[in-house]
Amino acid sequence: MSIEKYDFNEKNILHFKQDKHQIAIATHVLQVYYGNKHALVDGDLEFERYRITSLIGASGSGKSTYLRSLNRMNDNVAKVEGKIIYRGLDVNSSKINVYEMRKHIGMVFQRPNPFSKSIRANITFALKEQGLKDKKKLDEIVELSLKDAALWDEVKDDLDKSAWSLSGGQQQRLCIARTIAMKPDILLLDEPASALDPISTSKIEETLVELKKRYTIIIVTHNMQQASRISDYTAFFHMGHILEYGKTKNVFTTPQIRATNDYISGNFG
């Protein structure tokens, strides 16, 4: 394994034709700084609606940083510059109501983080906070979102048990259910299966493929098999630069950039 220098100007980025594809969210020259560290350079990506896009790359390549910037989860820890275009608005602006925005751009994290509440309350909590009081409607949403997350059959009799009594894989699916209960446009997932066993992982993958009928999904993953199995598009991140972006098949079979080729053939990372 050699540490090779790659030319960061050499890029191969897919841009969609506006009339043929619907763009759910896009970024223009997005920069992220942690203090003096320039963690993401010139992030320029467009994400097609109702598709799964994988963000791959080695640890520290900036893929999670990029993902977390999309719904402004990095606001407190980093300086984010550039544009994030969602519904024709630049949501990376101080005039934007981030709370409202996050209801439409939901996020699931690397480690399962259910609230210390019952399974039911984990899903209804944010809805109630928004003012939804109708109990029947809430029960309906609980059932639907748990079914969507492929968890319903396992927990339907224990909805009032603490979410912390579930297994890690179940907790993560509950977190997915909790996020889709908000009926977001876009689902951001930050290595959602990295802390889970293979069975839970494949369950989550099945769930995601099912969900892309109604949601735009952007997923950060370490696992290249996972990326090639479930995603339509793949972006390759390297040392804060996005070097290649295109159809998953193309990126994995005929990468145009040397760094991408080296990464997917296992030469580093």
Binding site: Y86, R87, G88, L89, V91, K95, I96, N97, Y99, E100, M101, H104, Q130, G131, D185
Partner: peptide, 11 residues
Amino acid sequence: IKKKIQSSSRE
């Protein structure tokens, strides 16, 4: 949704 994102809310 676009309108909501641009205006203040309960939150």
